[in-house]
Amino acid sequence: MNFLEWLVSGSIAVGDGSLSVPEVVGNVFGLASAILGMRRLVWAWPIGLVGNVLLFSVFASGELSNVVSEPLWGQAGRQVFFAAVSLYGWVRWTRLRRARRAGGVDDGRALTPRWATWSERAQLLVAGAIGYAVAYVALERIGSWGPATEAWILAGSMLATWGMARGWVEFWLVWILVDAVGVTTLVQAGYYPTAGMYGFYAFFVAMGFVVWWRAARASSRDLPTPDGSSVPSPEGAHR
């Protein structure tokens, strides 16, 4: 078995059982993407794309779990959405990074986080409700393993990824709610590496929220002018 075959269909012996290579490696790429996203680096998006492809193959097959035989279409479907939004986020963050560099800011980061406006939050809530309803009906009809919980994981993941692309601090809070449901669902379905990674994500999600919250708070402070007065920062004006 060559490396590519091992990456796509290999297994890692663990005690009396084994772990799926694409499931483990896909989640490692997902974790790396989350860490890079916390640091607001453009590489978060292409790294995440690799993990999306690997995890889609895991959940769409339904054969890598020793507990359930049905595909987890909600989990597989969100990888497709992740890939689409990752392309959008990659392009958007690249443009923002270039704009910051052209403006004299060369810290390597793509953007300054901000809190979403109340209008944007309302849009997220509406989109989340509609997304959950549509996902539930679709997953139930195609025979996914757990449509009720998978629908939330799918809809919540969509909102969180979109919020990250837009640079909203709230996206970390949405991830916390997604992970809370995801860990239980994946353990019951027998996808232990992914369930463990969800639990491990919780630490980085909490850290990411604090990092982005502090950056947003710092950007909203008044900036001093040469005469000693102050003016609101451009980032803070979005709040």
Score class of each variant (00 low, 15 high):
7 L>T: 05
8 V>W: 12
9 S>F: 03
12 I>Q: 12
12 I>E: 09
15 G>Q: 07
25 V>I: 11
26 G>V: 06
28 V>M: 10
31 L>P: 02
33 S>I: 07
33 S>M: 04
34 A>G: 05
34 A>H: 09
34 A>V: 05
38 M>K: 09
45 W>F: 15
46 P>A: 05
47 I>K: 07
51 G>E: 01
54 L>E: 09
54 L>W: 01
55 L>H: 10
57 S>A: 08
57 S>C: 12
62 G>H: 11
63 E>F: 09
69 S>Y: 06
74 G>C: 06
76 A>K: 08
77 G>L: 05
81 F>H: 12
82 F>H: 01
83 A>C: 04
86 S>T: 10
86 S>Y: 00
87 L>I: 12
88 Y>N: 06
90 W>H: 14
92 R>E: 15
93 W>Q: 13
94 T>S: 03
96 L>W: 07
98 R>Y: 06
99 A>N: 03
103 G>D: 07
104 G>W: 07
106 D>K: 00
107 D>G: 09
112 T>W: 00
120 E>I: 04
120 E>N: 10
121 R>C: 08
122 A>P: 00
123 Q>H: 07
127 A>D: 06
132 Y>D: 06
132 Y>E: 03
141 R>K: 13
142 I>E: 12
142 I>V: 14
144 S>A: 14
151 A>Q: 10
160 A>N: 10
161 T>V: 09
162 W>K: 03
162 W>D: 08
170 E>K: 03
170 E>T: 08
175 W>H: 02
176 I>V: 13
177 L>E: 11
178 V>T: 06
180 A>L: 09
182 G>A: 04
184 T>C: 04
184 T>V: 15
186 L>C: 13
187 V>L: 05
189 A>Q: 05
195 A>I: 04
199 G>A: 06
200 F>L: 03
202 A>L: 02
204 F>C: 10
205 V>Q: 05
208 G>Q: 02
209 F>I: 01
209 F>M: 01
218 A>L: 03
219 S>W: 04
219 S>C: 07
219 S>L: 04
220 S>F: 02
225 T>W: 08
226 P>V: 02
226 P>N: 10
231 V>E: 02
232 P>Y: 02
238 H>Y: 15
